[in-house]
Simulated assay, not measured.
Amino acid sequence: MATGPTAKSEKTIVVSGIPDGVVKDDIMADILMIHFQKAKNWGGDVEDVVYPTTIKGVAYIIFEDQEVAENVLKKDEHKLEDKRLGRYFPLKISLYTEHIFTCVSSVLDLSIFGDKYILEDLVKELQKHITDLSFSPLQSNGLISVQGSFPAIKSLKDNLLLRANSLSWKDKRGESKPDQRPNSRTQKHRLSMGPSNNVVHNLGKEEQVVVLDTDIYYYMKQFLYKESLAKYSVVSREVTDGEVTTIYLENSRASSDPRELERAKERIEDFSAKLHCSLRKERFSLDGNTKSKRQKYKQACEMVKAKFPKVLVIPYDTHVDVIGSSSDTYEFTQEVNRLVKAHFQKRFRR
């Protein structure tokens, strides 16, 4: 995926509705290539077919020419037909867009490691191990900005937690040498770190901590979240800070099995991983539009939303975010744009 659709997104379409298990994967890839090369399907030369993918029933078709990809998207109906399939299967076609996690920014305070590490060397080591991240210059107070995909940010968090816990255990066992530096931050270090399994003991209660991309959290909360917590007798509180949301899980009853907390955490993380692979985000920018046009976009989103029950619409002052599967978000945005365009064309003719 990294060298296929991502690098050539303008020439790539997403195909969903592919029957699973009817024929072998390599045969299905051939059938898809033949389908999208046919003139009757408004197709042309295909550079590559990415199938199977991490999403069941979904393939990525990369054309040699961007114009062919645009033509294929204009065709009203695509039916996958081949004698090896036994019958035809309707396909949903949409333009490829990047995963919901385009880029996440975070500011780290590495000053708590200042007593045990040379911070510049620590940053170089982190850069070496997590190459997907971009680091700003380290400030004198220990702050540093980091940008990258959400999984890479999460990997960085886990790396730093392991280092902090290792130092904490060494301190407890007396293995660390006495710190000779002035203004020691060792006490601050100990207070800020929890055990490596992310269980926090707070006033006799246990908590599990889950860190999610905020858009994933919003989508999960709308469609999956409450059922997951109710199943495990768990309650939660959430803290959202820009692109990152931290969830703190607690047992809803004092007599609840502590293992339910861990199971709830694992379930939420599993959901998050699956959504990370399948969700896309489209955005209607409202900046620069008249008040009337901004209002019309918001109204059109509300009207179209009923047709797409698995799409999450989040209105803001400056834009509207649309989150869902690749095919749903593409069709949603097309329908909204059509409604807005038709409305203003009608007004102009008057």
Rank of each mutant, 00 (worst) to 15 (best):
S105N: 15
A152G: 14
A152H: 10
R181Y: 09
K79A: 06
L156F: 07
G114M: 04
A164L: 06
H129M: 07
G174P: 03
R173D: 14
A59P: 13
V72N: 05
L160V: 07
E67C: 05
V68K: 00
N141G: 04
S94C: 11
S155P: 00
F135T: 07
G86S: 06
L119A: 05
E70T: 10
S134G: 03
V146P: 07
I130P: 09
S145T: 13
L161G: 01
E125H: 03
N71D: 14
Q180L: 14
S145W: 02
I62S: 00
E98P: 05
K83M: 08
H99V: 11
L85G: 08
Q127E: 15
N183K: 13
P137R: 05
S111F: 06
D65C: 00
G174R: 00
E70D: 15
V72W: 04
K177W: 03
L95N: 14
T186E: 13
E125P: 00
K128T: 12
K56A: 14
V146L: 04
P90F: 00
K128H: 12
I61K: 06
N159H: 10
D82F: 01
P151E: 12
L85C: 05
F150E: 02
Q127V: 01
I144W: 02
K75T: 01
T186A: 10
I118D: 14
I118C: 10
S105T: 14
R84I: 10
S149Q: 11
L161D: 14
F135H: 06
S94W: 05
D82K: 00
E120V: 13
I55M: 09
R84A: 15
I55T: 14
I130Q: 07
I100V: 15
R181V: 09
H78V: 02
P178R: 05
I112Y: 13
Q127A: 08
R84L: 15
K74H: 06
K56L: 13
A152Q: 10
S149C: 03
I144M: 02
R185V: 09
L73A: 04
T102K: 15
V58H: 04
K116H: 15
N165M: 07
E70V: 10
L126S: 04
N183R: 13
N71Q: 11
L73S: 03
S155F: 00
G148M: 02
V146W: 04
L108H: 12
K172Y: 12
K170M: 15
L143M: 13
R84V: 11
D132N: 11
Q66G: 10
R87N: 13
I153W: 05
C103L: 10
F113T: 08
Q139I: 00
S155G: 06
S111G: 07
H129T: 14
D179R: 01
L133I: 04
R173G: 07
K170S: 14
S105Q: 15
D132Y: 02
L80Q: 09
E175G: 07
K170Q: 15
Y117T: 02
I100E: 09
N71K: 12
D65E: 09
L143F: 14
E64N: 12
R181H: 12
P137T: 09
